[in-house]
Amino acid sequence: MSSPITPAIVSALAPTGTLRASINLGNPILANEDAASGDPAGVSVDLARALAERLSVPIGLVVFEKAAASVDAVRNEQADIGFFAIDPARSEGLRFTAPYVLIEGSYLVPAASPIRRNEQVDQGDVRIAVGTGSAYDLFLTREIKEAQIERVQGAKGVFESLHAGQVEVAAGIRQVLEAEAGRTPGLRLLPGRFMVIQQAMGTPASRGAEAAAALAAFVEEMKASGFVAEALARHRIQGASVAPAAVQA
């Protein structure tokens, strides 16, 4: 962080004496279970540990399988920080940093589908499966005018709906959809993307402006120092990019 870590900042970000970090395992770009230990691992976990070290407090990981639950944990102050896609629908009760990673959101369809481009998805006879409360759910709820949005539980539910013919389109993280297409014959990823997901860190708004500014400065330092890029490489993450530096007001 560019500013000194004062006792007030430590108290605001880790009021229990432990930095409780909300980790969403539903986004494998940022976190998943280590194959050997079963412990959470990934870019968001690395950032949480680095912040705890900076604050000179222990780290406590609060793990969830869905983004919405992870967001609620921070909003309800069951966790001190979290890692979320920036979205206006999530702003109440939270303060976000600028993004540290950018991720593409894409569509997956059956190979025989007449849909060839992203622009063709928003039609009255199309049903789109999304994970409830995900960044895709929030974005498409605002943007889709004609198609029907089917909200299911996580990526597994999205794929099950597509395989069962209950929907015509699956929406999600491009890399996750690519992996499913590689595992399952008869699926096709639409070219390009329908959205760019801005992954940021967040803290309860009640922690105050000074704590939010300190967290924002931490994220900027982690991007500028190469920490985020190195973490992406170390965890062999492809398709995600380090977000550019925040524009200073």
Rank of each mutant, 00 (worst) to 15 (best):
E221G: 03
L13A: 06
D87L: 07
A68S: 10
Y100R: 06
N118D: 05
A52T: 07
A89Y: 02
D125S: 02
R95L: 11
E143K: 13
G93D: 12
L51A: 14
I5V: 14
Q175P: 00
E77C: 04
A147S: 09
N32Y: 13
A14Q: 02
I237H: 07
P191W: 06
A200F: 15
A12K: 01
E77I: 06
V152P: 03
K145P: 00
G60R: 09
H163W: 14
Q148I: 01
P28V: 14
G165M: 10
A135K: 02
Q175V: 02
V219A: 01
L215T: 00
L25A: 11
R151I: 10
R142G: 13
V196H: 03
A224R: 09
Q148T: 05
V196T: 01
P58V: 04
G192L: 12
P7D: 11
A67L: 04
M1F: 13
V10Y: 14
G182L: 09
D122I: 05
V63Q: 13
R117G: 03
L177S: 04
P7N: 12
A249E: 12
A129T: 02
S70C: 05
A246M: 04
S106K: 00
V45N: 11
R234G: 13
G133E: 07
I81D: 00
A135M: 03
Y107N: 00
E65Q: 13
E221R: 02
A209R: 07
A89D: 08
L61P: 06
T203S: 14
Q238A: 10
S70K: 02
R116V: 10
A243R: 07
A67C: 06
F139N: 08
A212Q: 00
N27H: 08
I197K: 04
L47M: 08
P99I: 08
M222W: 00
I237V: 15
G208T: 07
F159K: 01
A246E: 06
P88E: 15
I86K: 07
S2I: 15
M1V: 08
G186S: 04
A14N: 02
S70G: 11
R193Y: 09
V130E: 01
L102F: 15
P28E: 14
N27R: 00
L47H: 01
K66S: 09
V167T: 05
L140Q: 00
V242R: 03
D137S: 11
L19W: 04
A233T: 01
S161C: 01
P185K: 03
T16L: 09
I59K: 09
R90Y: 11
S44Y: 12
R207H: 14
Q199F: 13
G133H: 11
G172C: 04
A35N: 03
E180Y: 05
S91G: 03
V167R: 06
Q198P: 06
A41E: 15
L187G: 12
V74F: 12
L55E: 10
A98F: 14
V242Q: 05
G154P: 06
E178C: 12
A73N: 09
S91T: 07
E146W: 07
I86N: 09
D39V: 10
A85P: 05
A224E: 10
A89C: 01
S56Y: 02
S56R: 11
R95A: 15
V109C: 08
A164W: 05
A8S: 11
M195I: 06
S161K: 01
